[in-house]
Design a binder for these strands. Structure first.
Lengths: 201, 201
DNA sequence: TTCCTTATAGAACGATCGTTCGTTTGTGTC
DNA sequence: GACACAAACGAACGATCGTTCTATAAGGAA
């Protein structure tokens, strides 16, 4: 890895955790230059524009998410076991990665949902891809016979997203110590309602 | 109402709908002055600081929320009917009010959850108050015998918040035409799971 | 070492930020 | 109409924003 790639990665690391706290929109070249002990122009040259820097941060976030949340779960057998692993990794990934201020993309989703442009597109595509992954995982749990065959997969994913978002808010804004427990309880209720009934009595 | 109060309200109206699109943190005195056809200093004098303006917007949002979401529902009998009304009003209130870019406070929650200060406190208190209202409403549905007596009220409210947040995201970021339907389906599933079983067979 | 490329620094640009100040305009009261 | 007070303006402040330019320093291949 050349010198350029190397420092670019250092910048991205810093931008990543900074954006976690103040949002992708709140990133500033000057502040980032200070934190990395570089000149503004030197840092700027690596990206060409502020927007490109922001996009790079969003792509970095996607990459780490795939490595930390999705990939480890792929080693488990398809079905509920894998789905459960993804959900747990998902809920914990802000702790696993260097995300002192919560998921970058999720915050960016609320920030840019009304501002058309490349940033909104990037966020949108990232979350659409995540939903697709979740949908496939749920569909496999239907295929294995663990979830009912008439399961509304899209609805299932919809509700999963709700659980994730309220958990983030409860943790970050309310400092609710029960957030994780409640999230898992909501997930259990979701799975139970869609689960195949094995025995009648 | 004196002249001062009058223009202050004009400013707040504009700031309110602007903040809906770009966030409370993205508000700027200059832009707001242009939109209201005032000078920066003239507008500034009404609030004394930018932060005070932002706080005023958040308080304005709380007031409108109470009028549009909670109050109309209080005319319905306590219990599931009232809870249902609140949820429906809640999901629709960005359409009812002048909120082209979604709920101001909810966006601010994601924006300030990592930045200590008066703004975070205001958002936090607003959402805590909402959760308290929701909890009381759910508790009354338990009291009327419509929901099971062992209902975990906090869990119920937790999941309600999840439904609200994912609905906002689905509508604003994904332009999902099914968002409202899915939200109501999730709410129905929530109520059904906690409802008292009337007949056994 | 030599040479070319890449990476970083430094200074400056125009724009916008929130804020302050002094002045002018407007409103309401005696 | 005169007066007191509130409201709005216009100009300017220092700071920071993203960006551009030119020049210096470092890196890597021959």
């Amino acid at each position: 890895m050349g010198k350029g790639e190397q420092t670019r990665q250092v910048i991205l690391d810093e931008a990543f955790s900074l954006a976690s706290c103040i949002g992708v929109g709140g990133l500033s070249i000057g502040v980032l230059a200070d934190r990395t002990h570089m000149s503004k122009s030197g840092l700027f040259a690596h990206f060409g524009s502020k927007e490109e820097l922001q996009l790079a941060v969003l792509r970095e976030s996607q990459q780490r998410f795939a490595e930390v949340v999705v990939r480890p779960a792929l080693r488990l057998p398809r079905g509920l076991a894998r789905l459960h692993a993804i959900v747990v990794n998902w809920l914990d990934w802000t702790k696993t990665c260097n995300l002192p201020g919560g998921c970058v993309i999720n915050a960016a989703a609320a920030e840019f949902d009304d501002q058309p442009g490349p940033l909104r597109d990037e966020v949108r595509n990232a979350l659409l891809a995540l939903n697709r992954t979740l949908a496939e995982t749920v569909a496999k749990a239907v295929a294995t016979g663990e979830l009912r065959s008439d399961t509304d997969v899209e609805q299932f994913v919809f509700e999963l997203n709700g659980i994730y978002q309220v958990t983030q808010q409860s943790r970050r804004l309310f400092n609710d110590p029960d957030a994780d427990r409640r999230a898992l309880a909501a997930f259990d209720r979701l799975v139970r309602d869609y689960a195949v009934i094995h025995a009648k009595e």
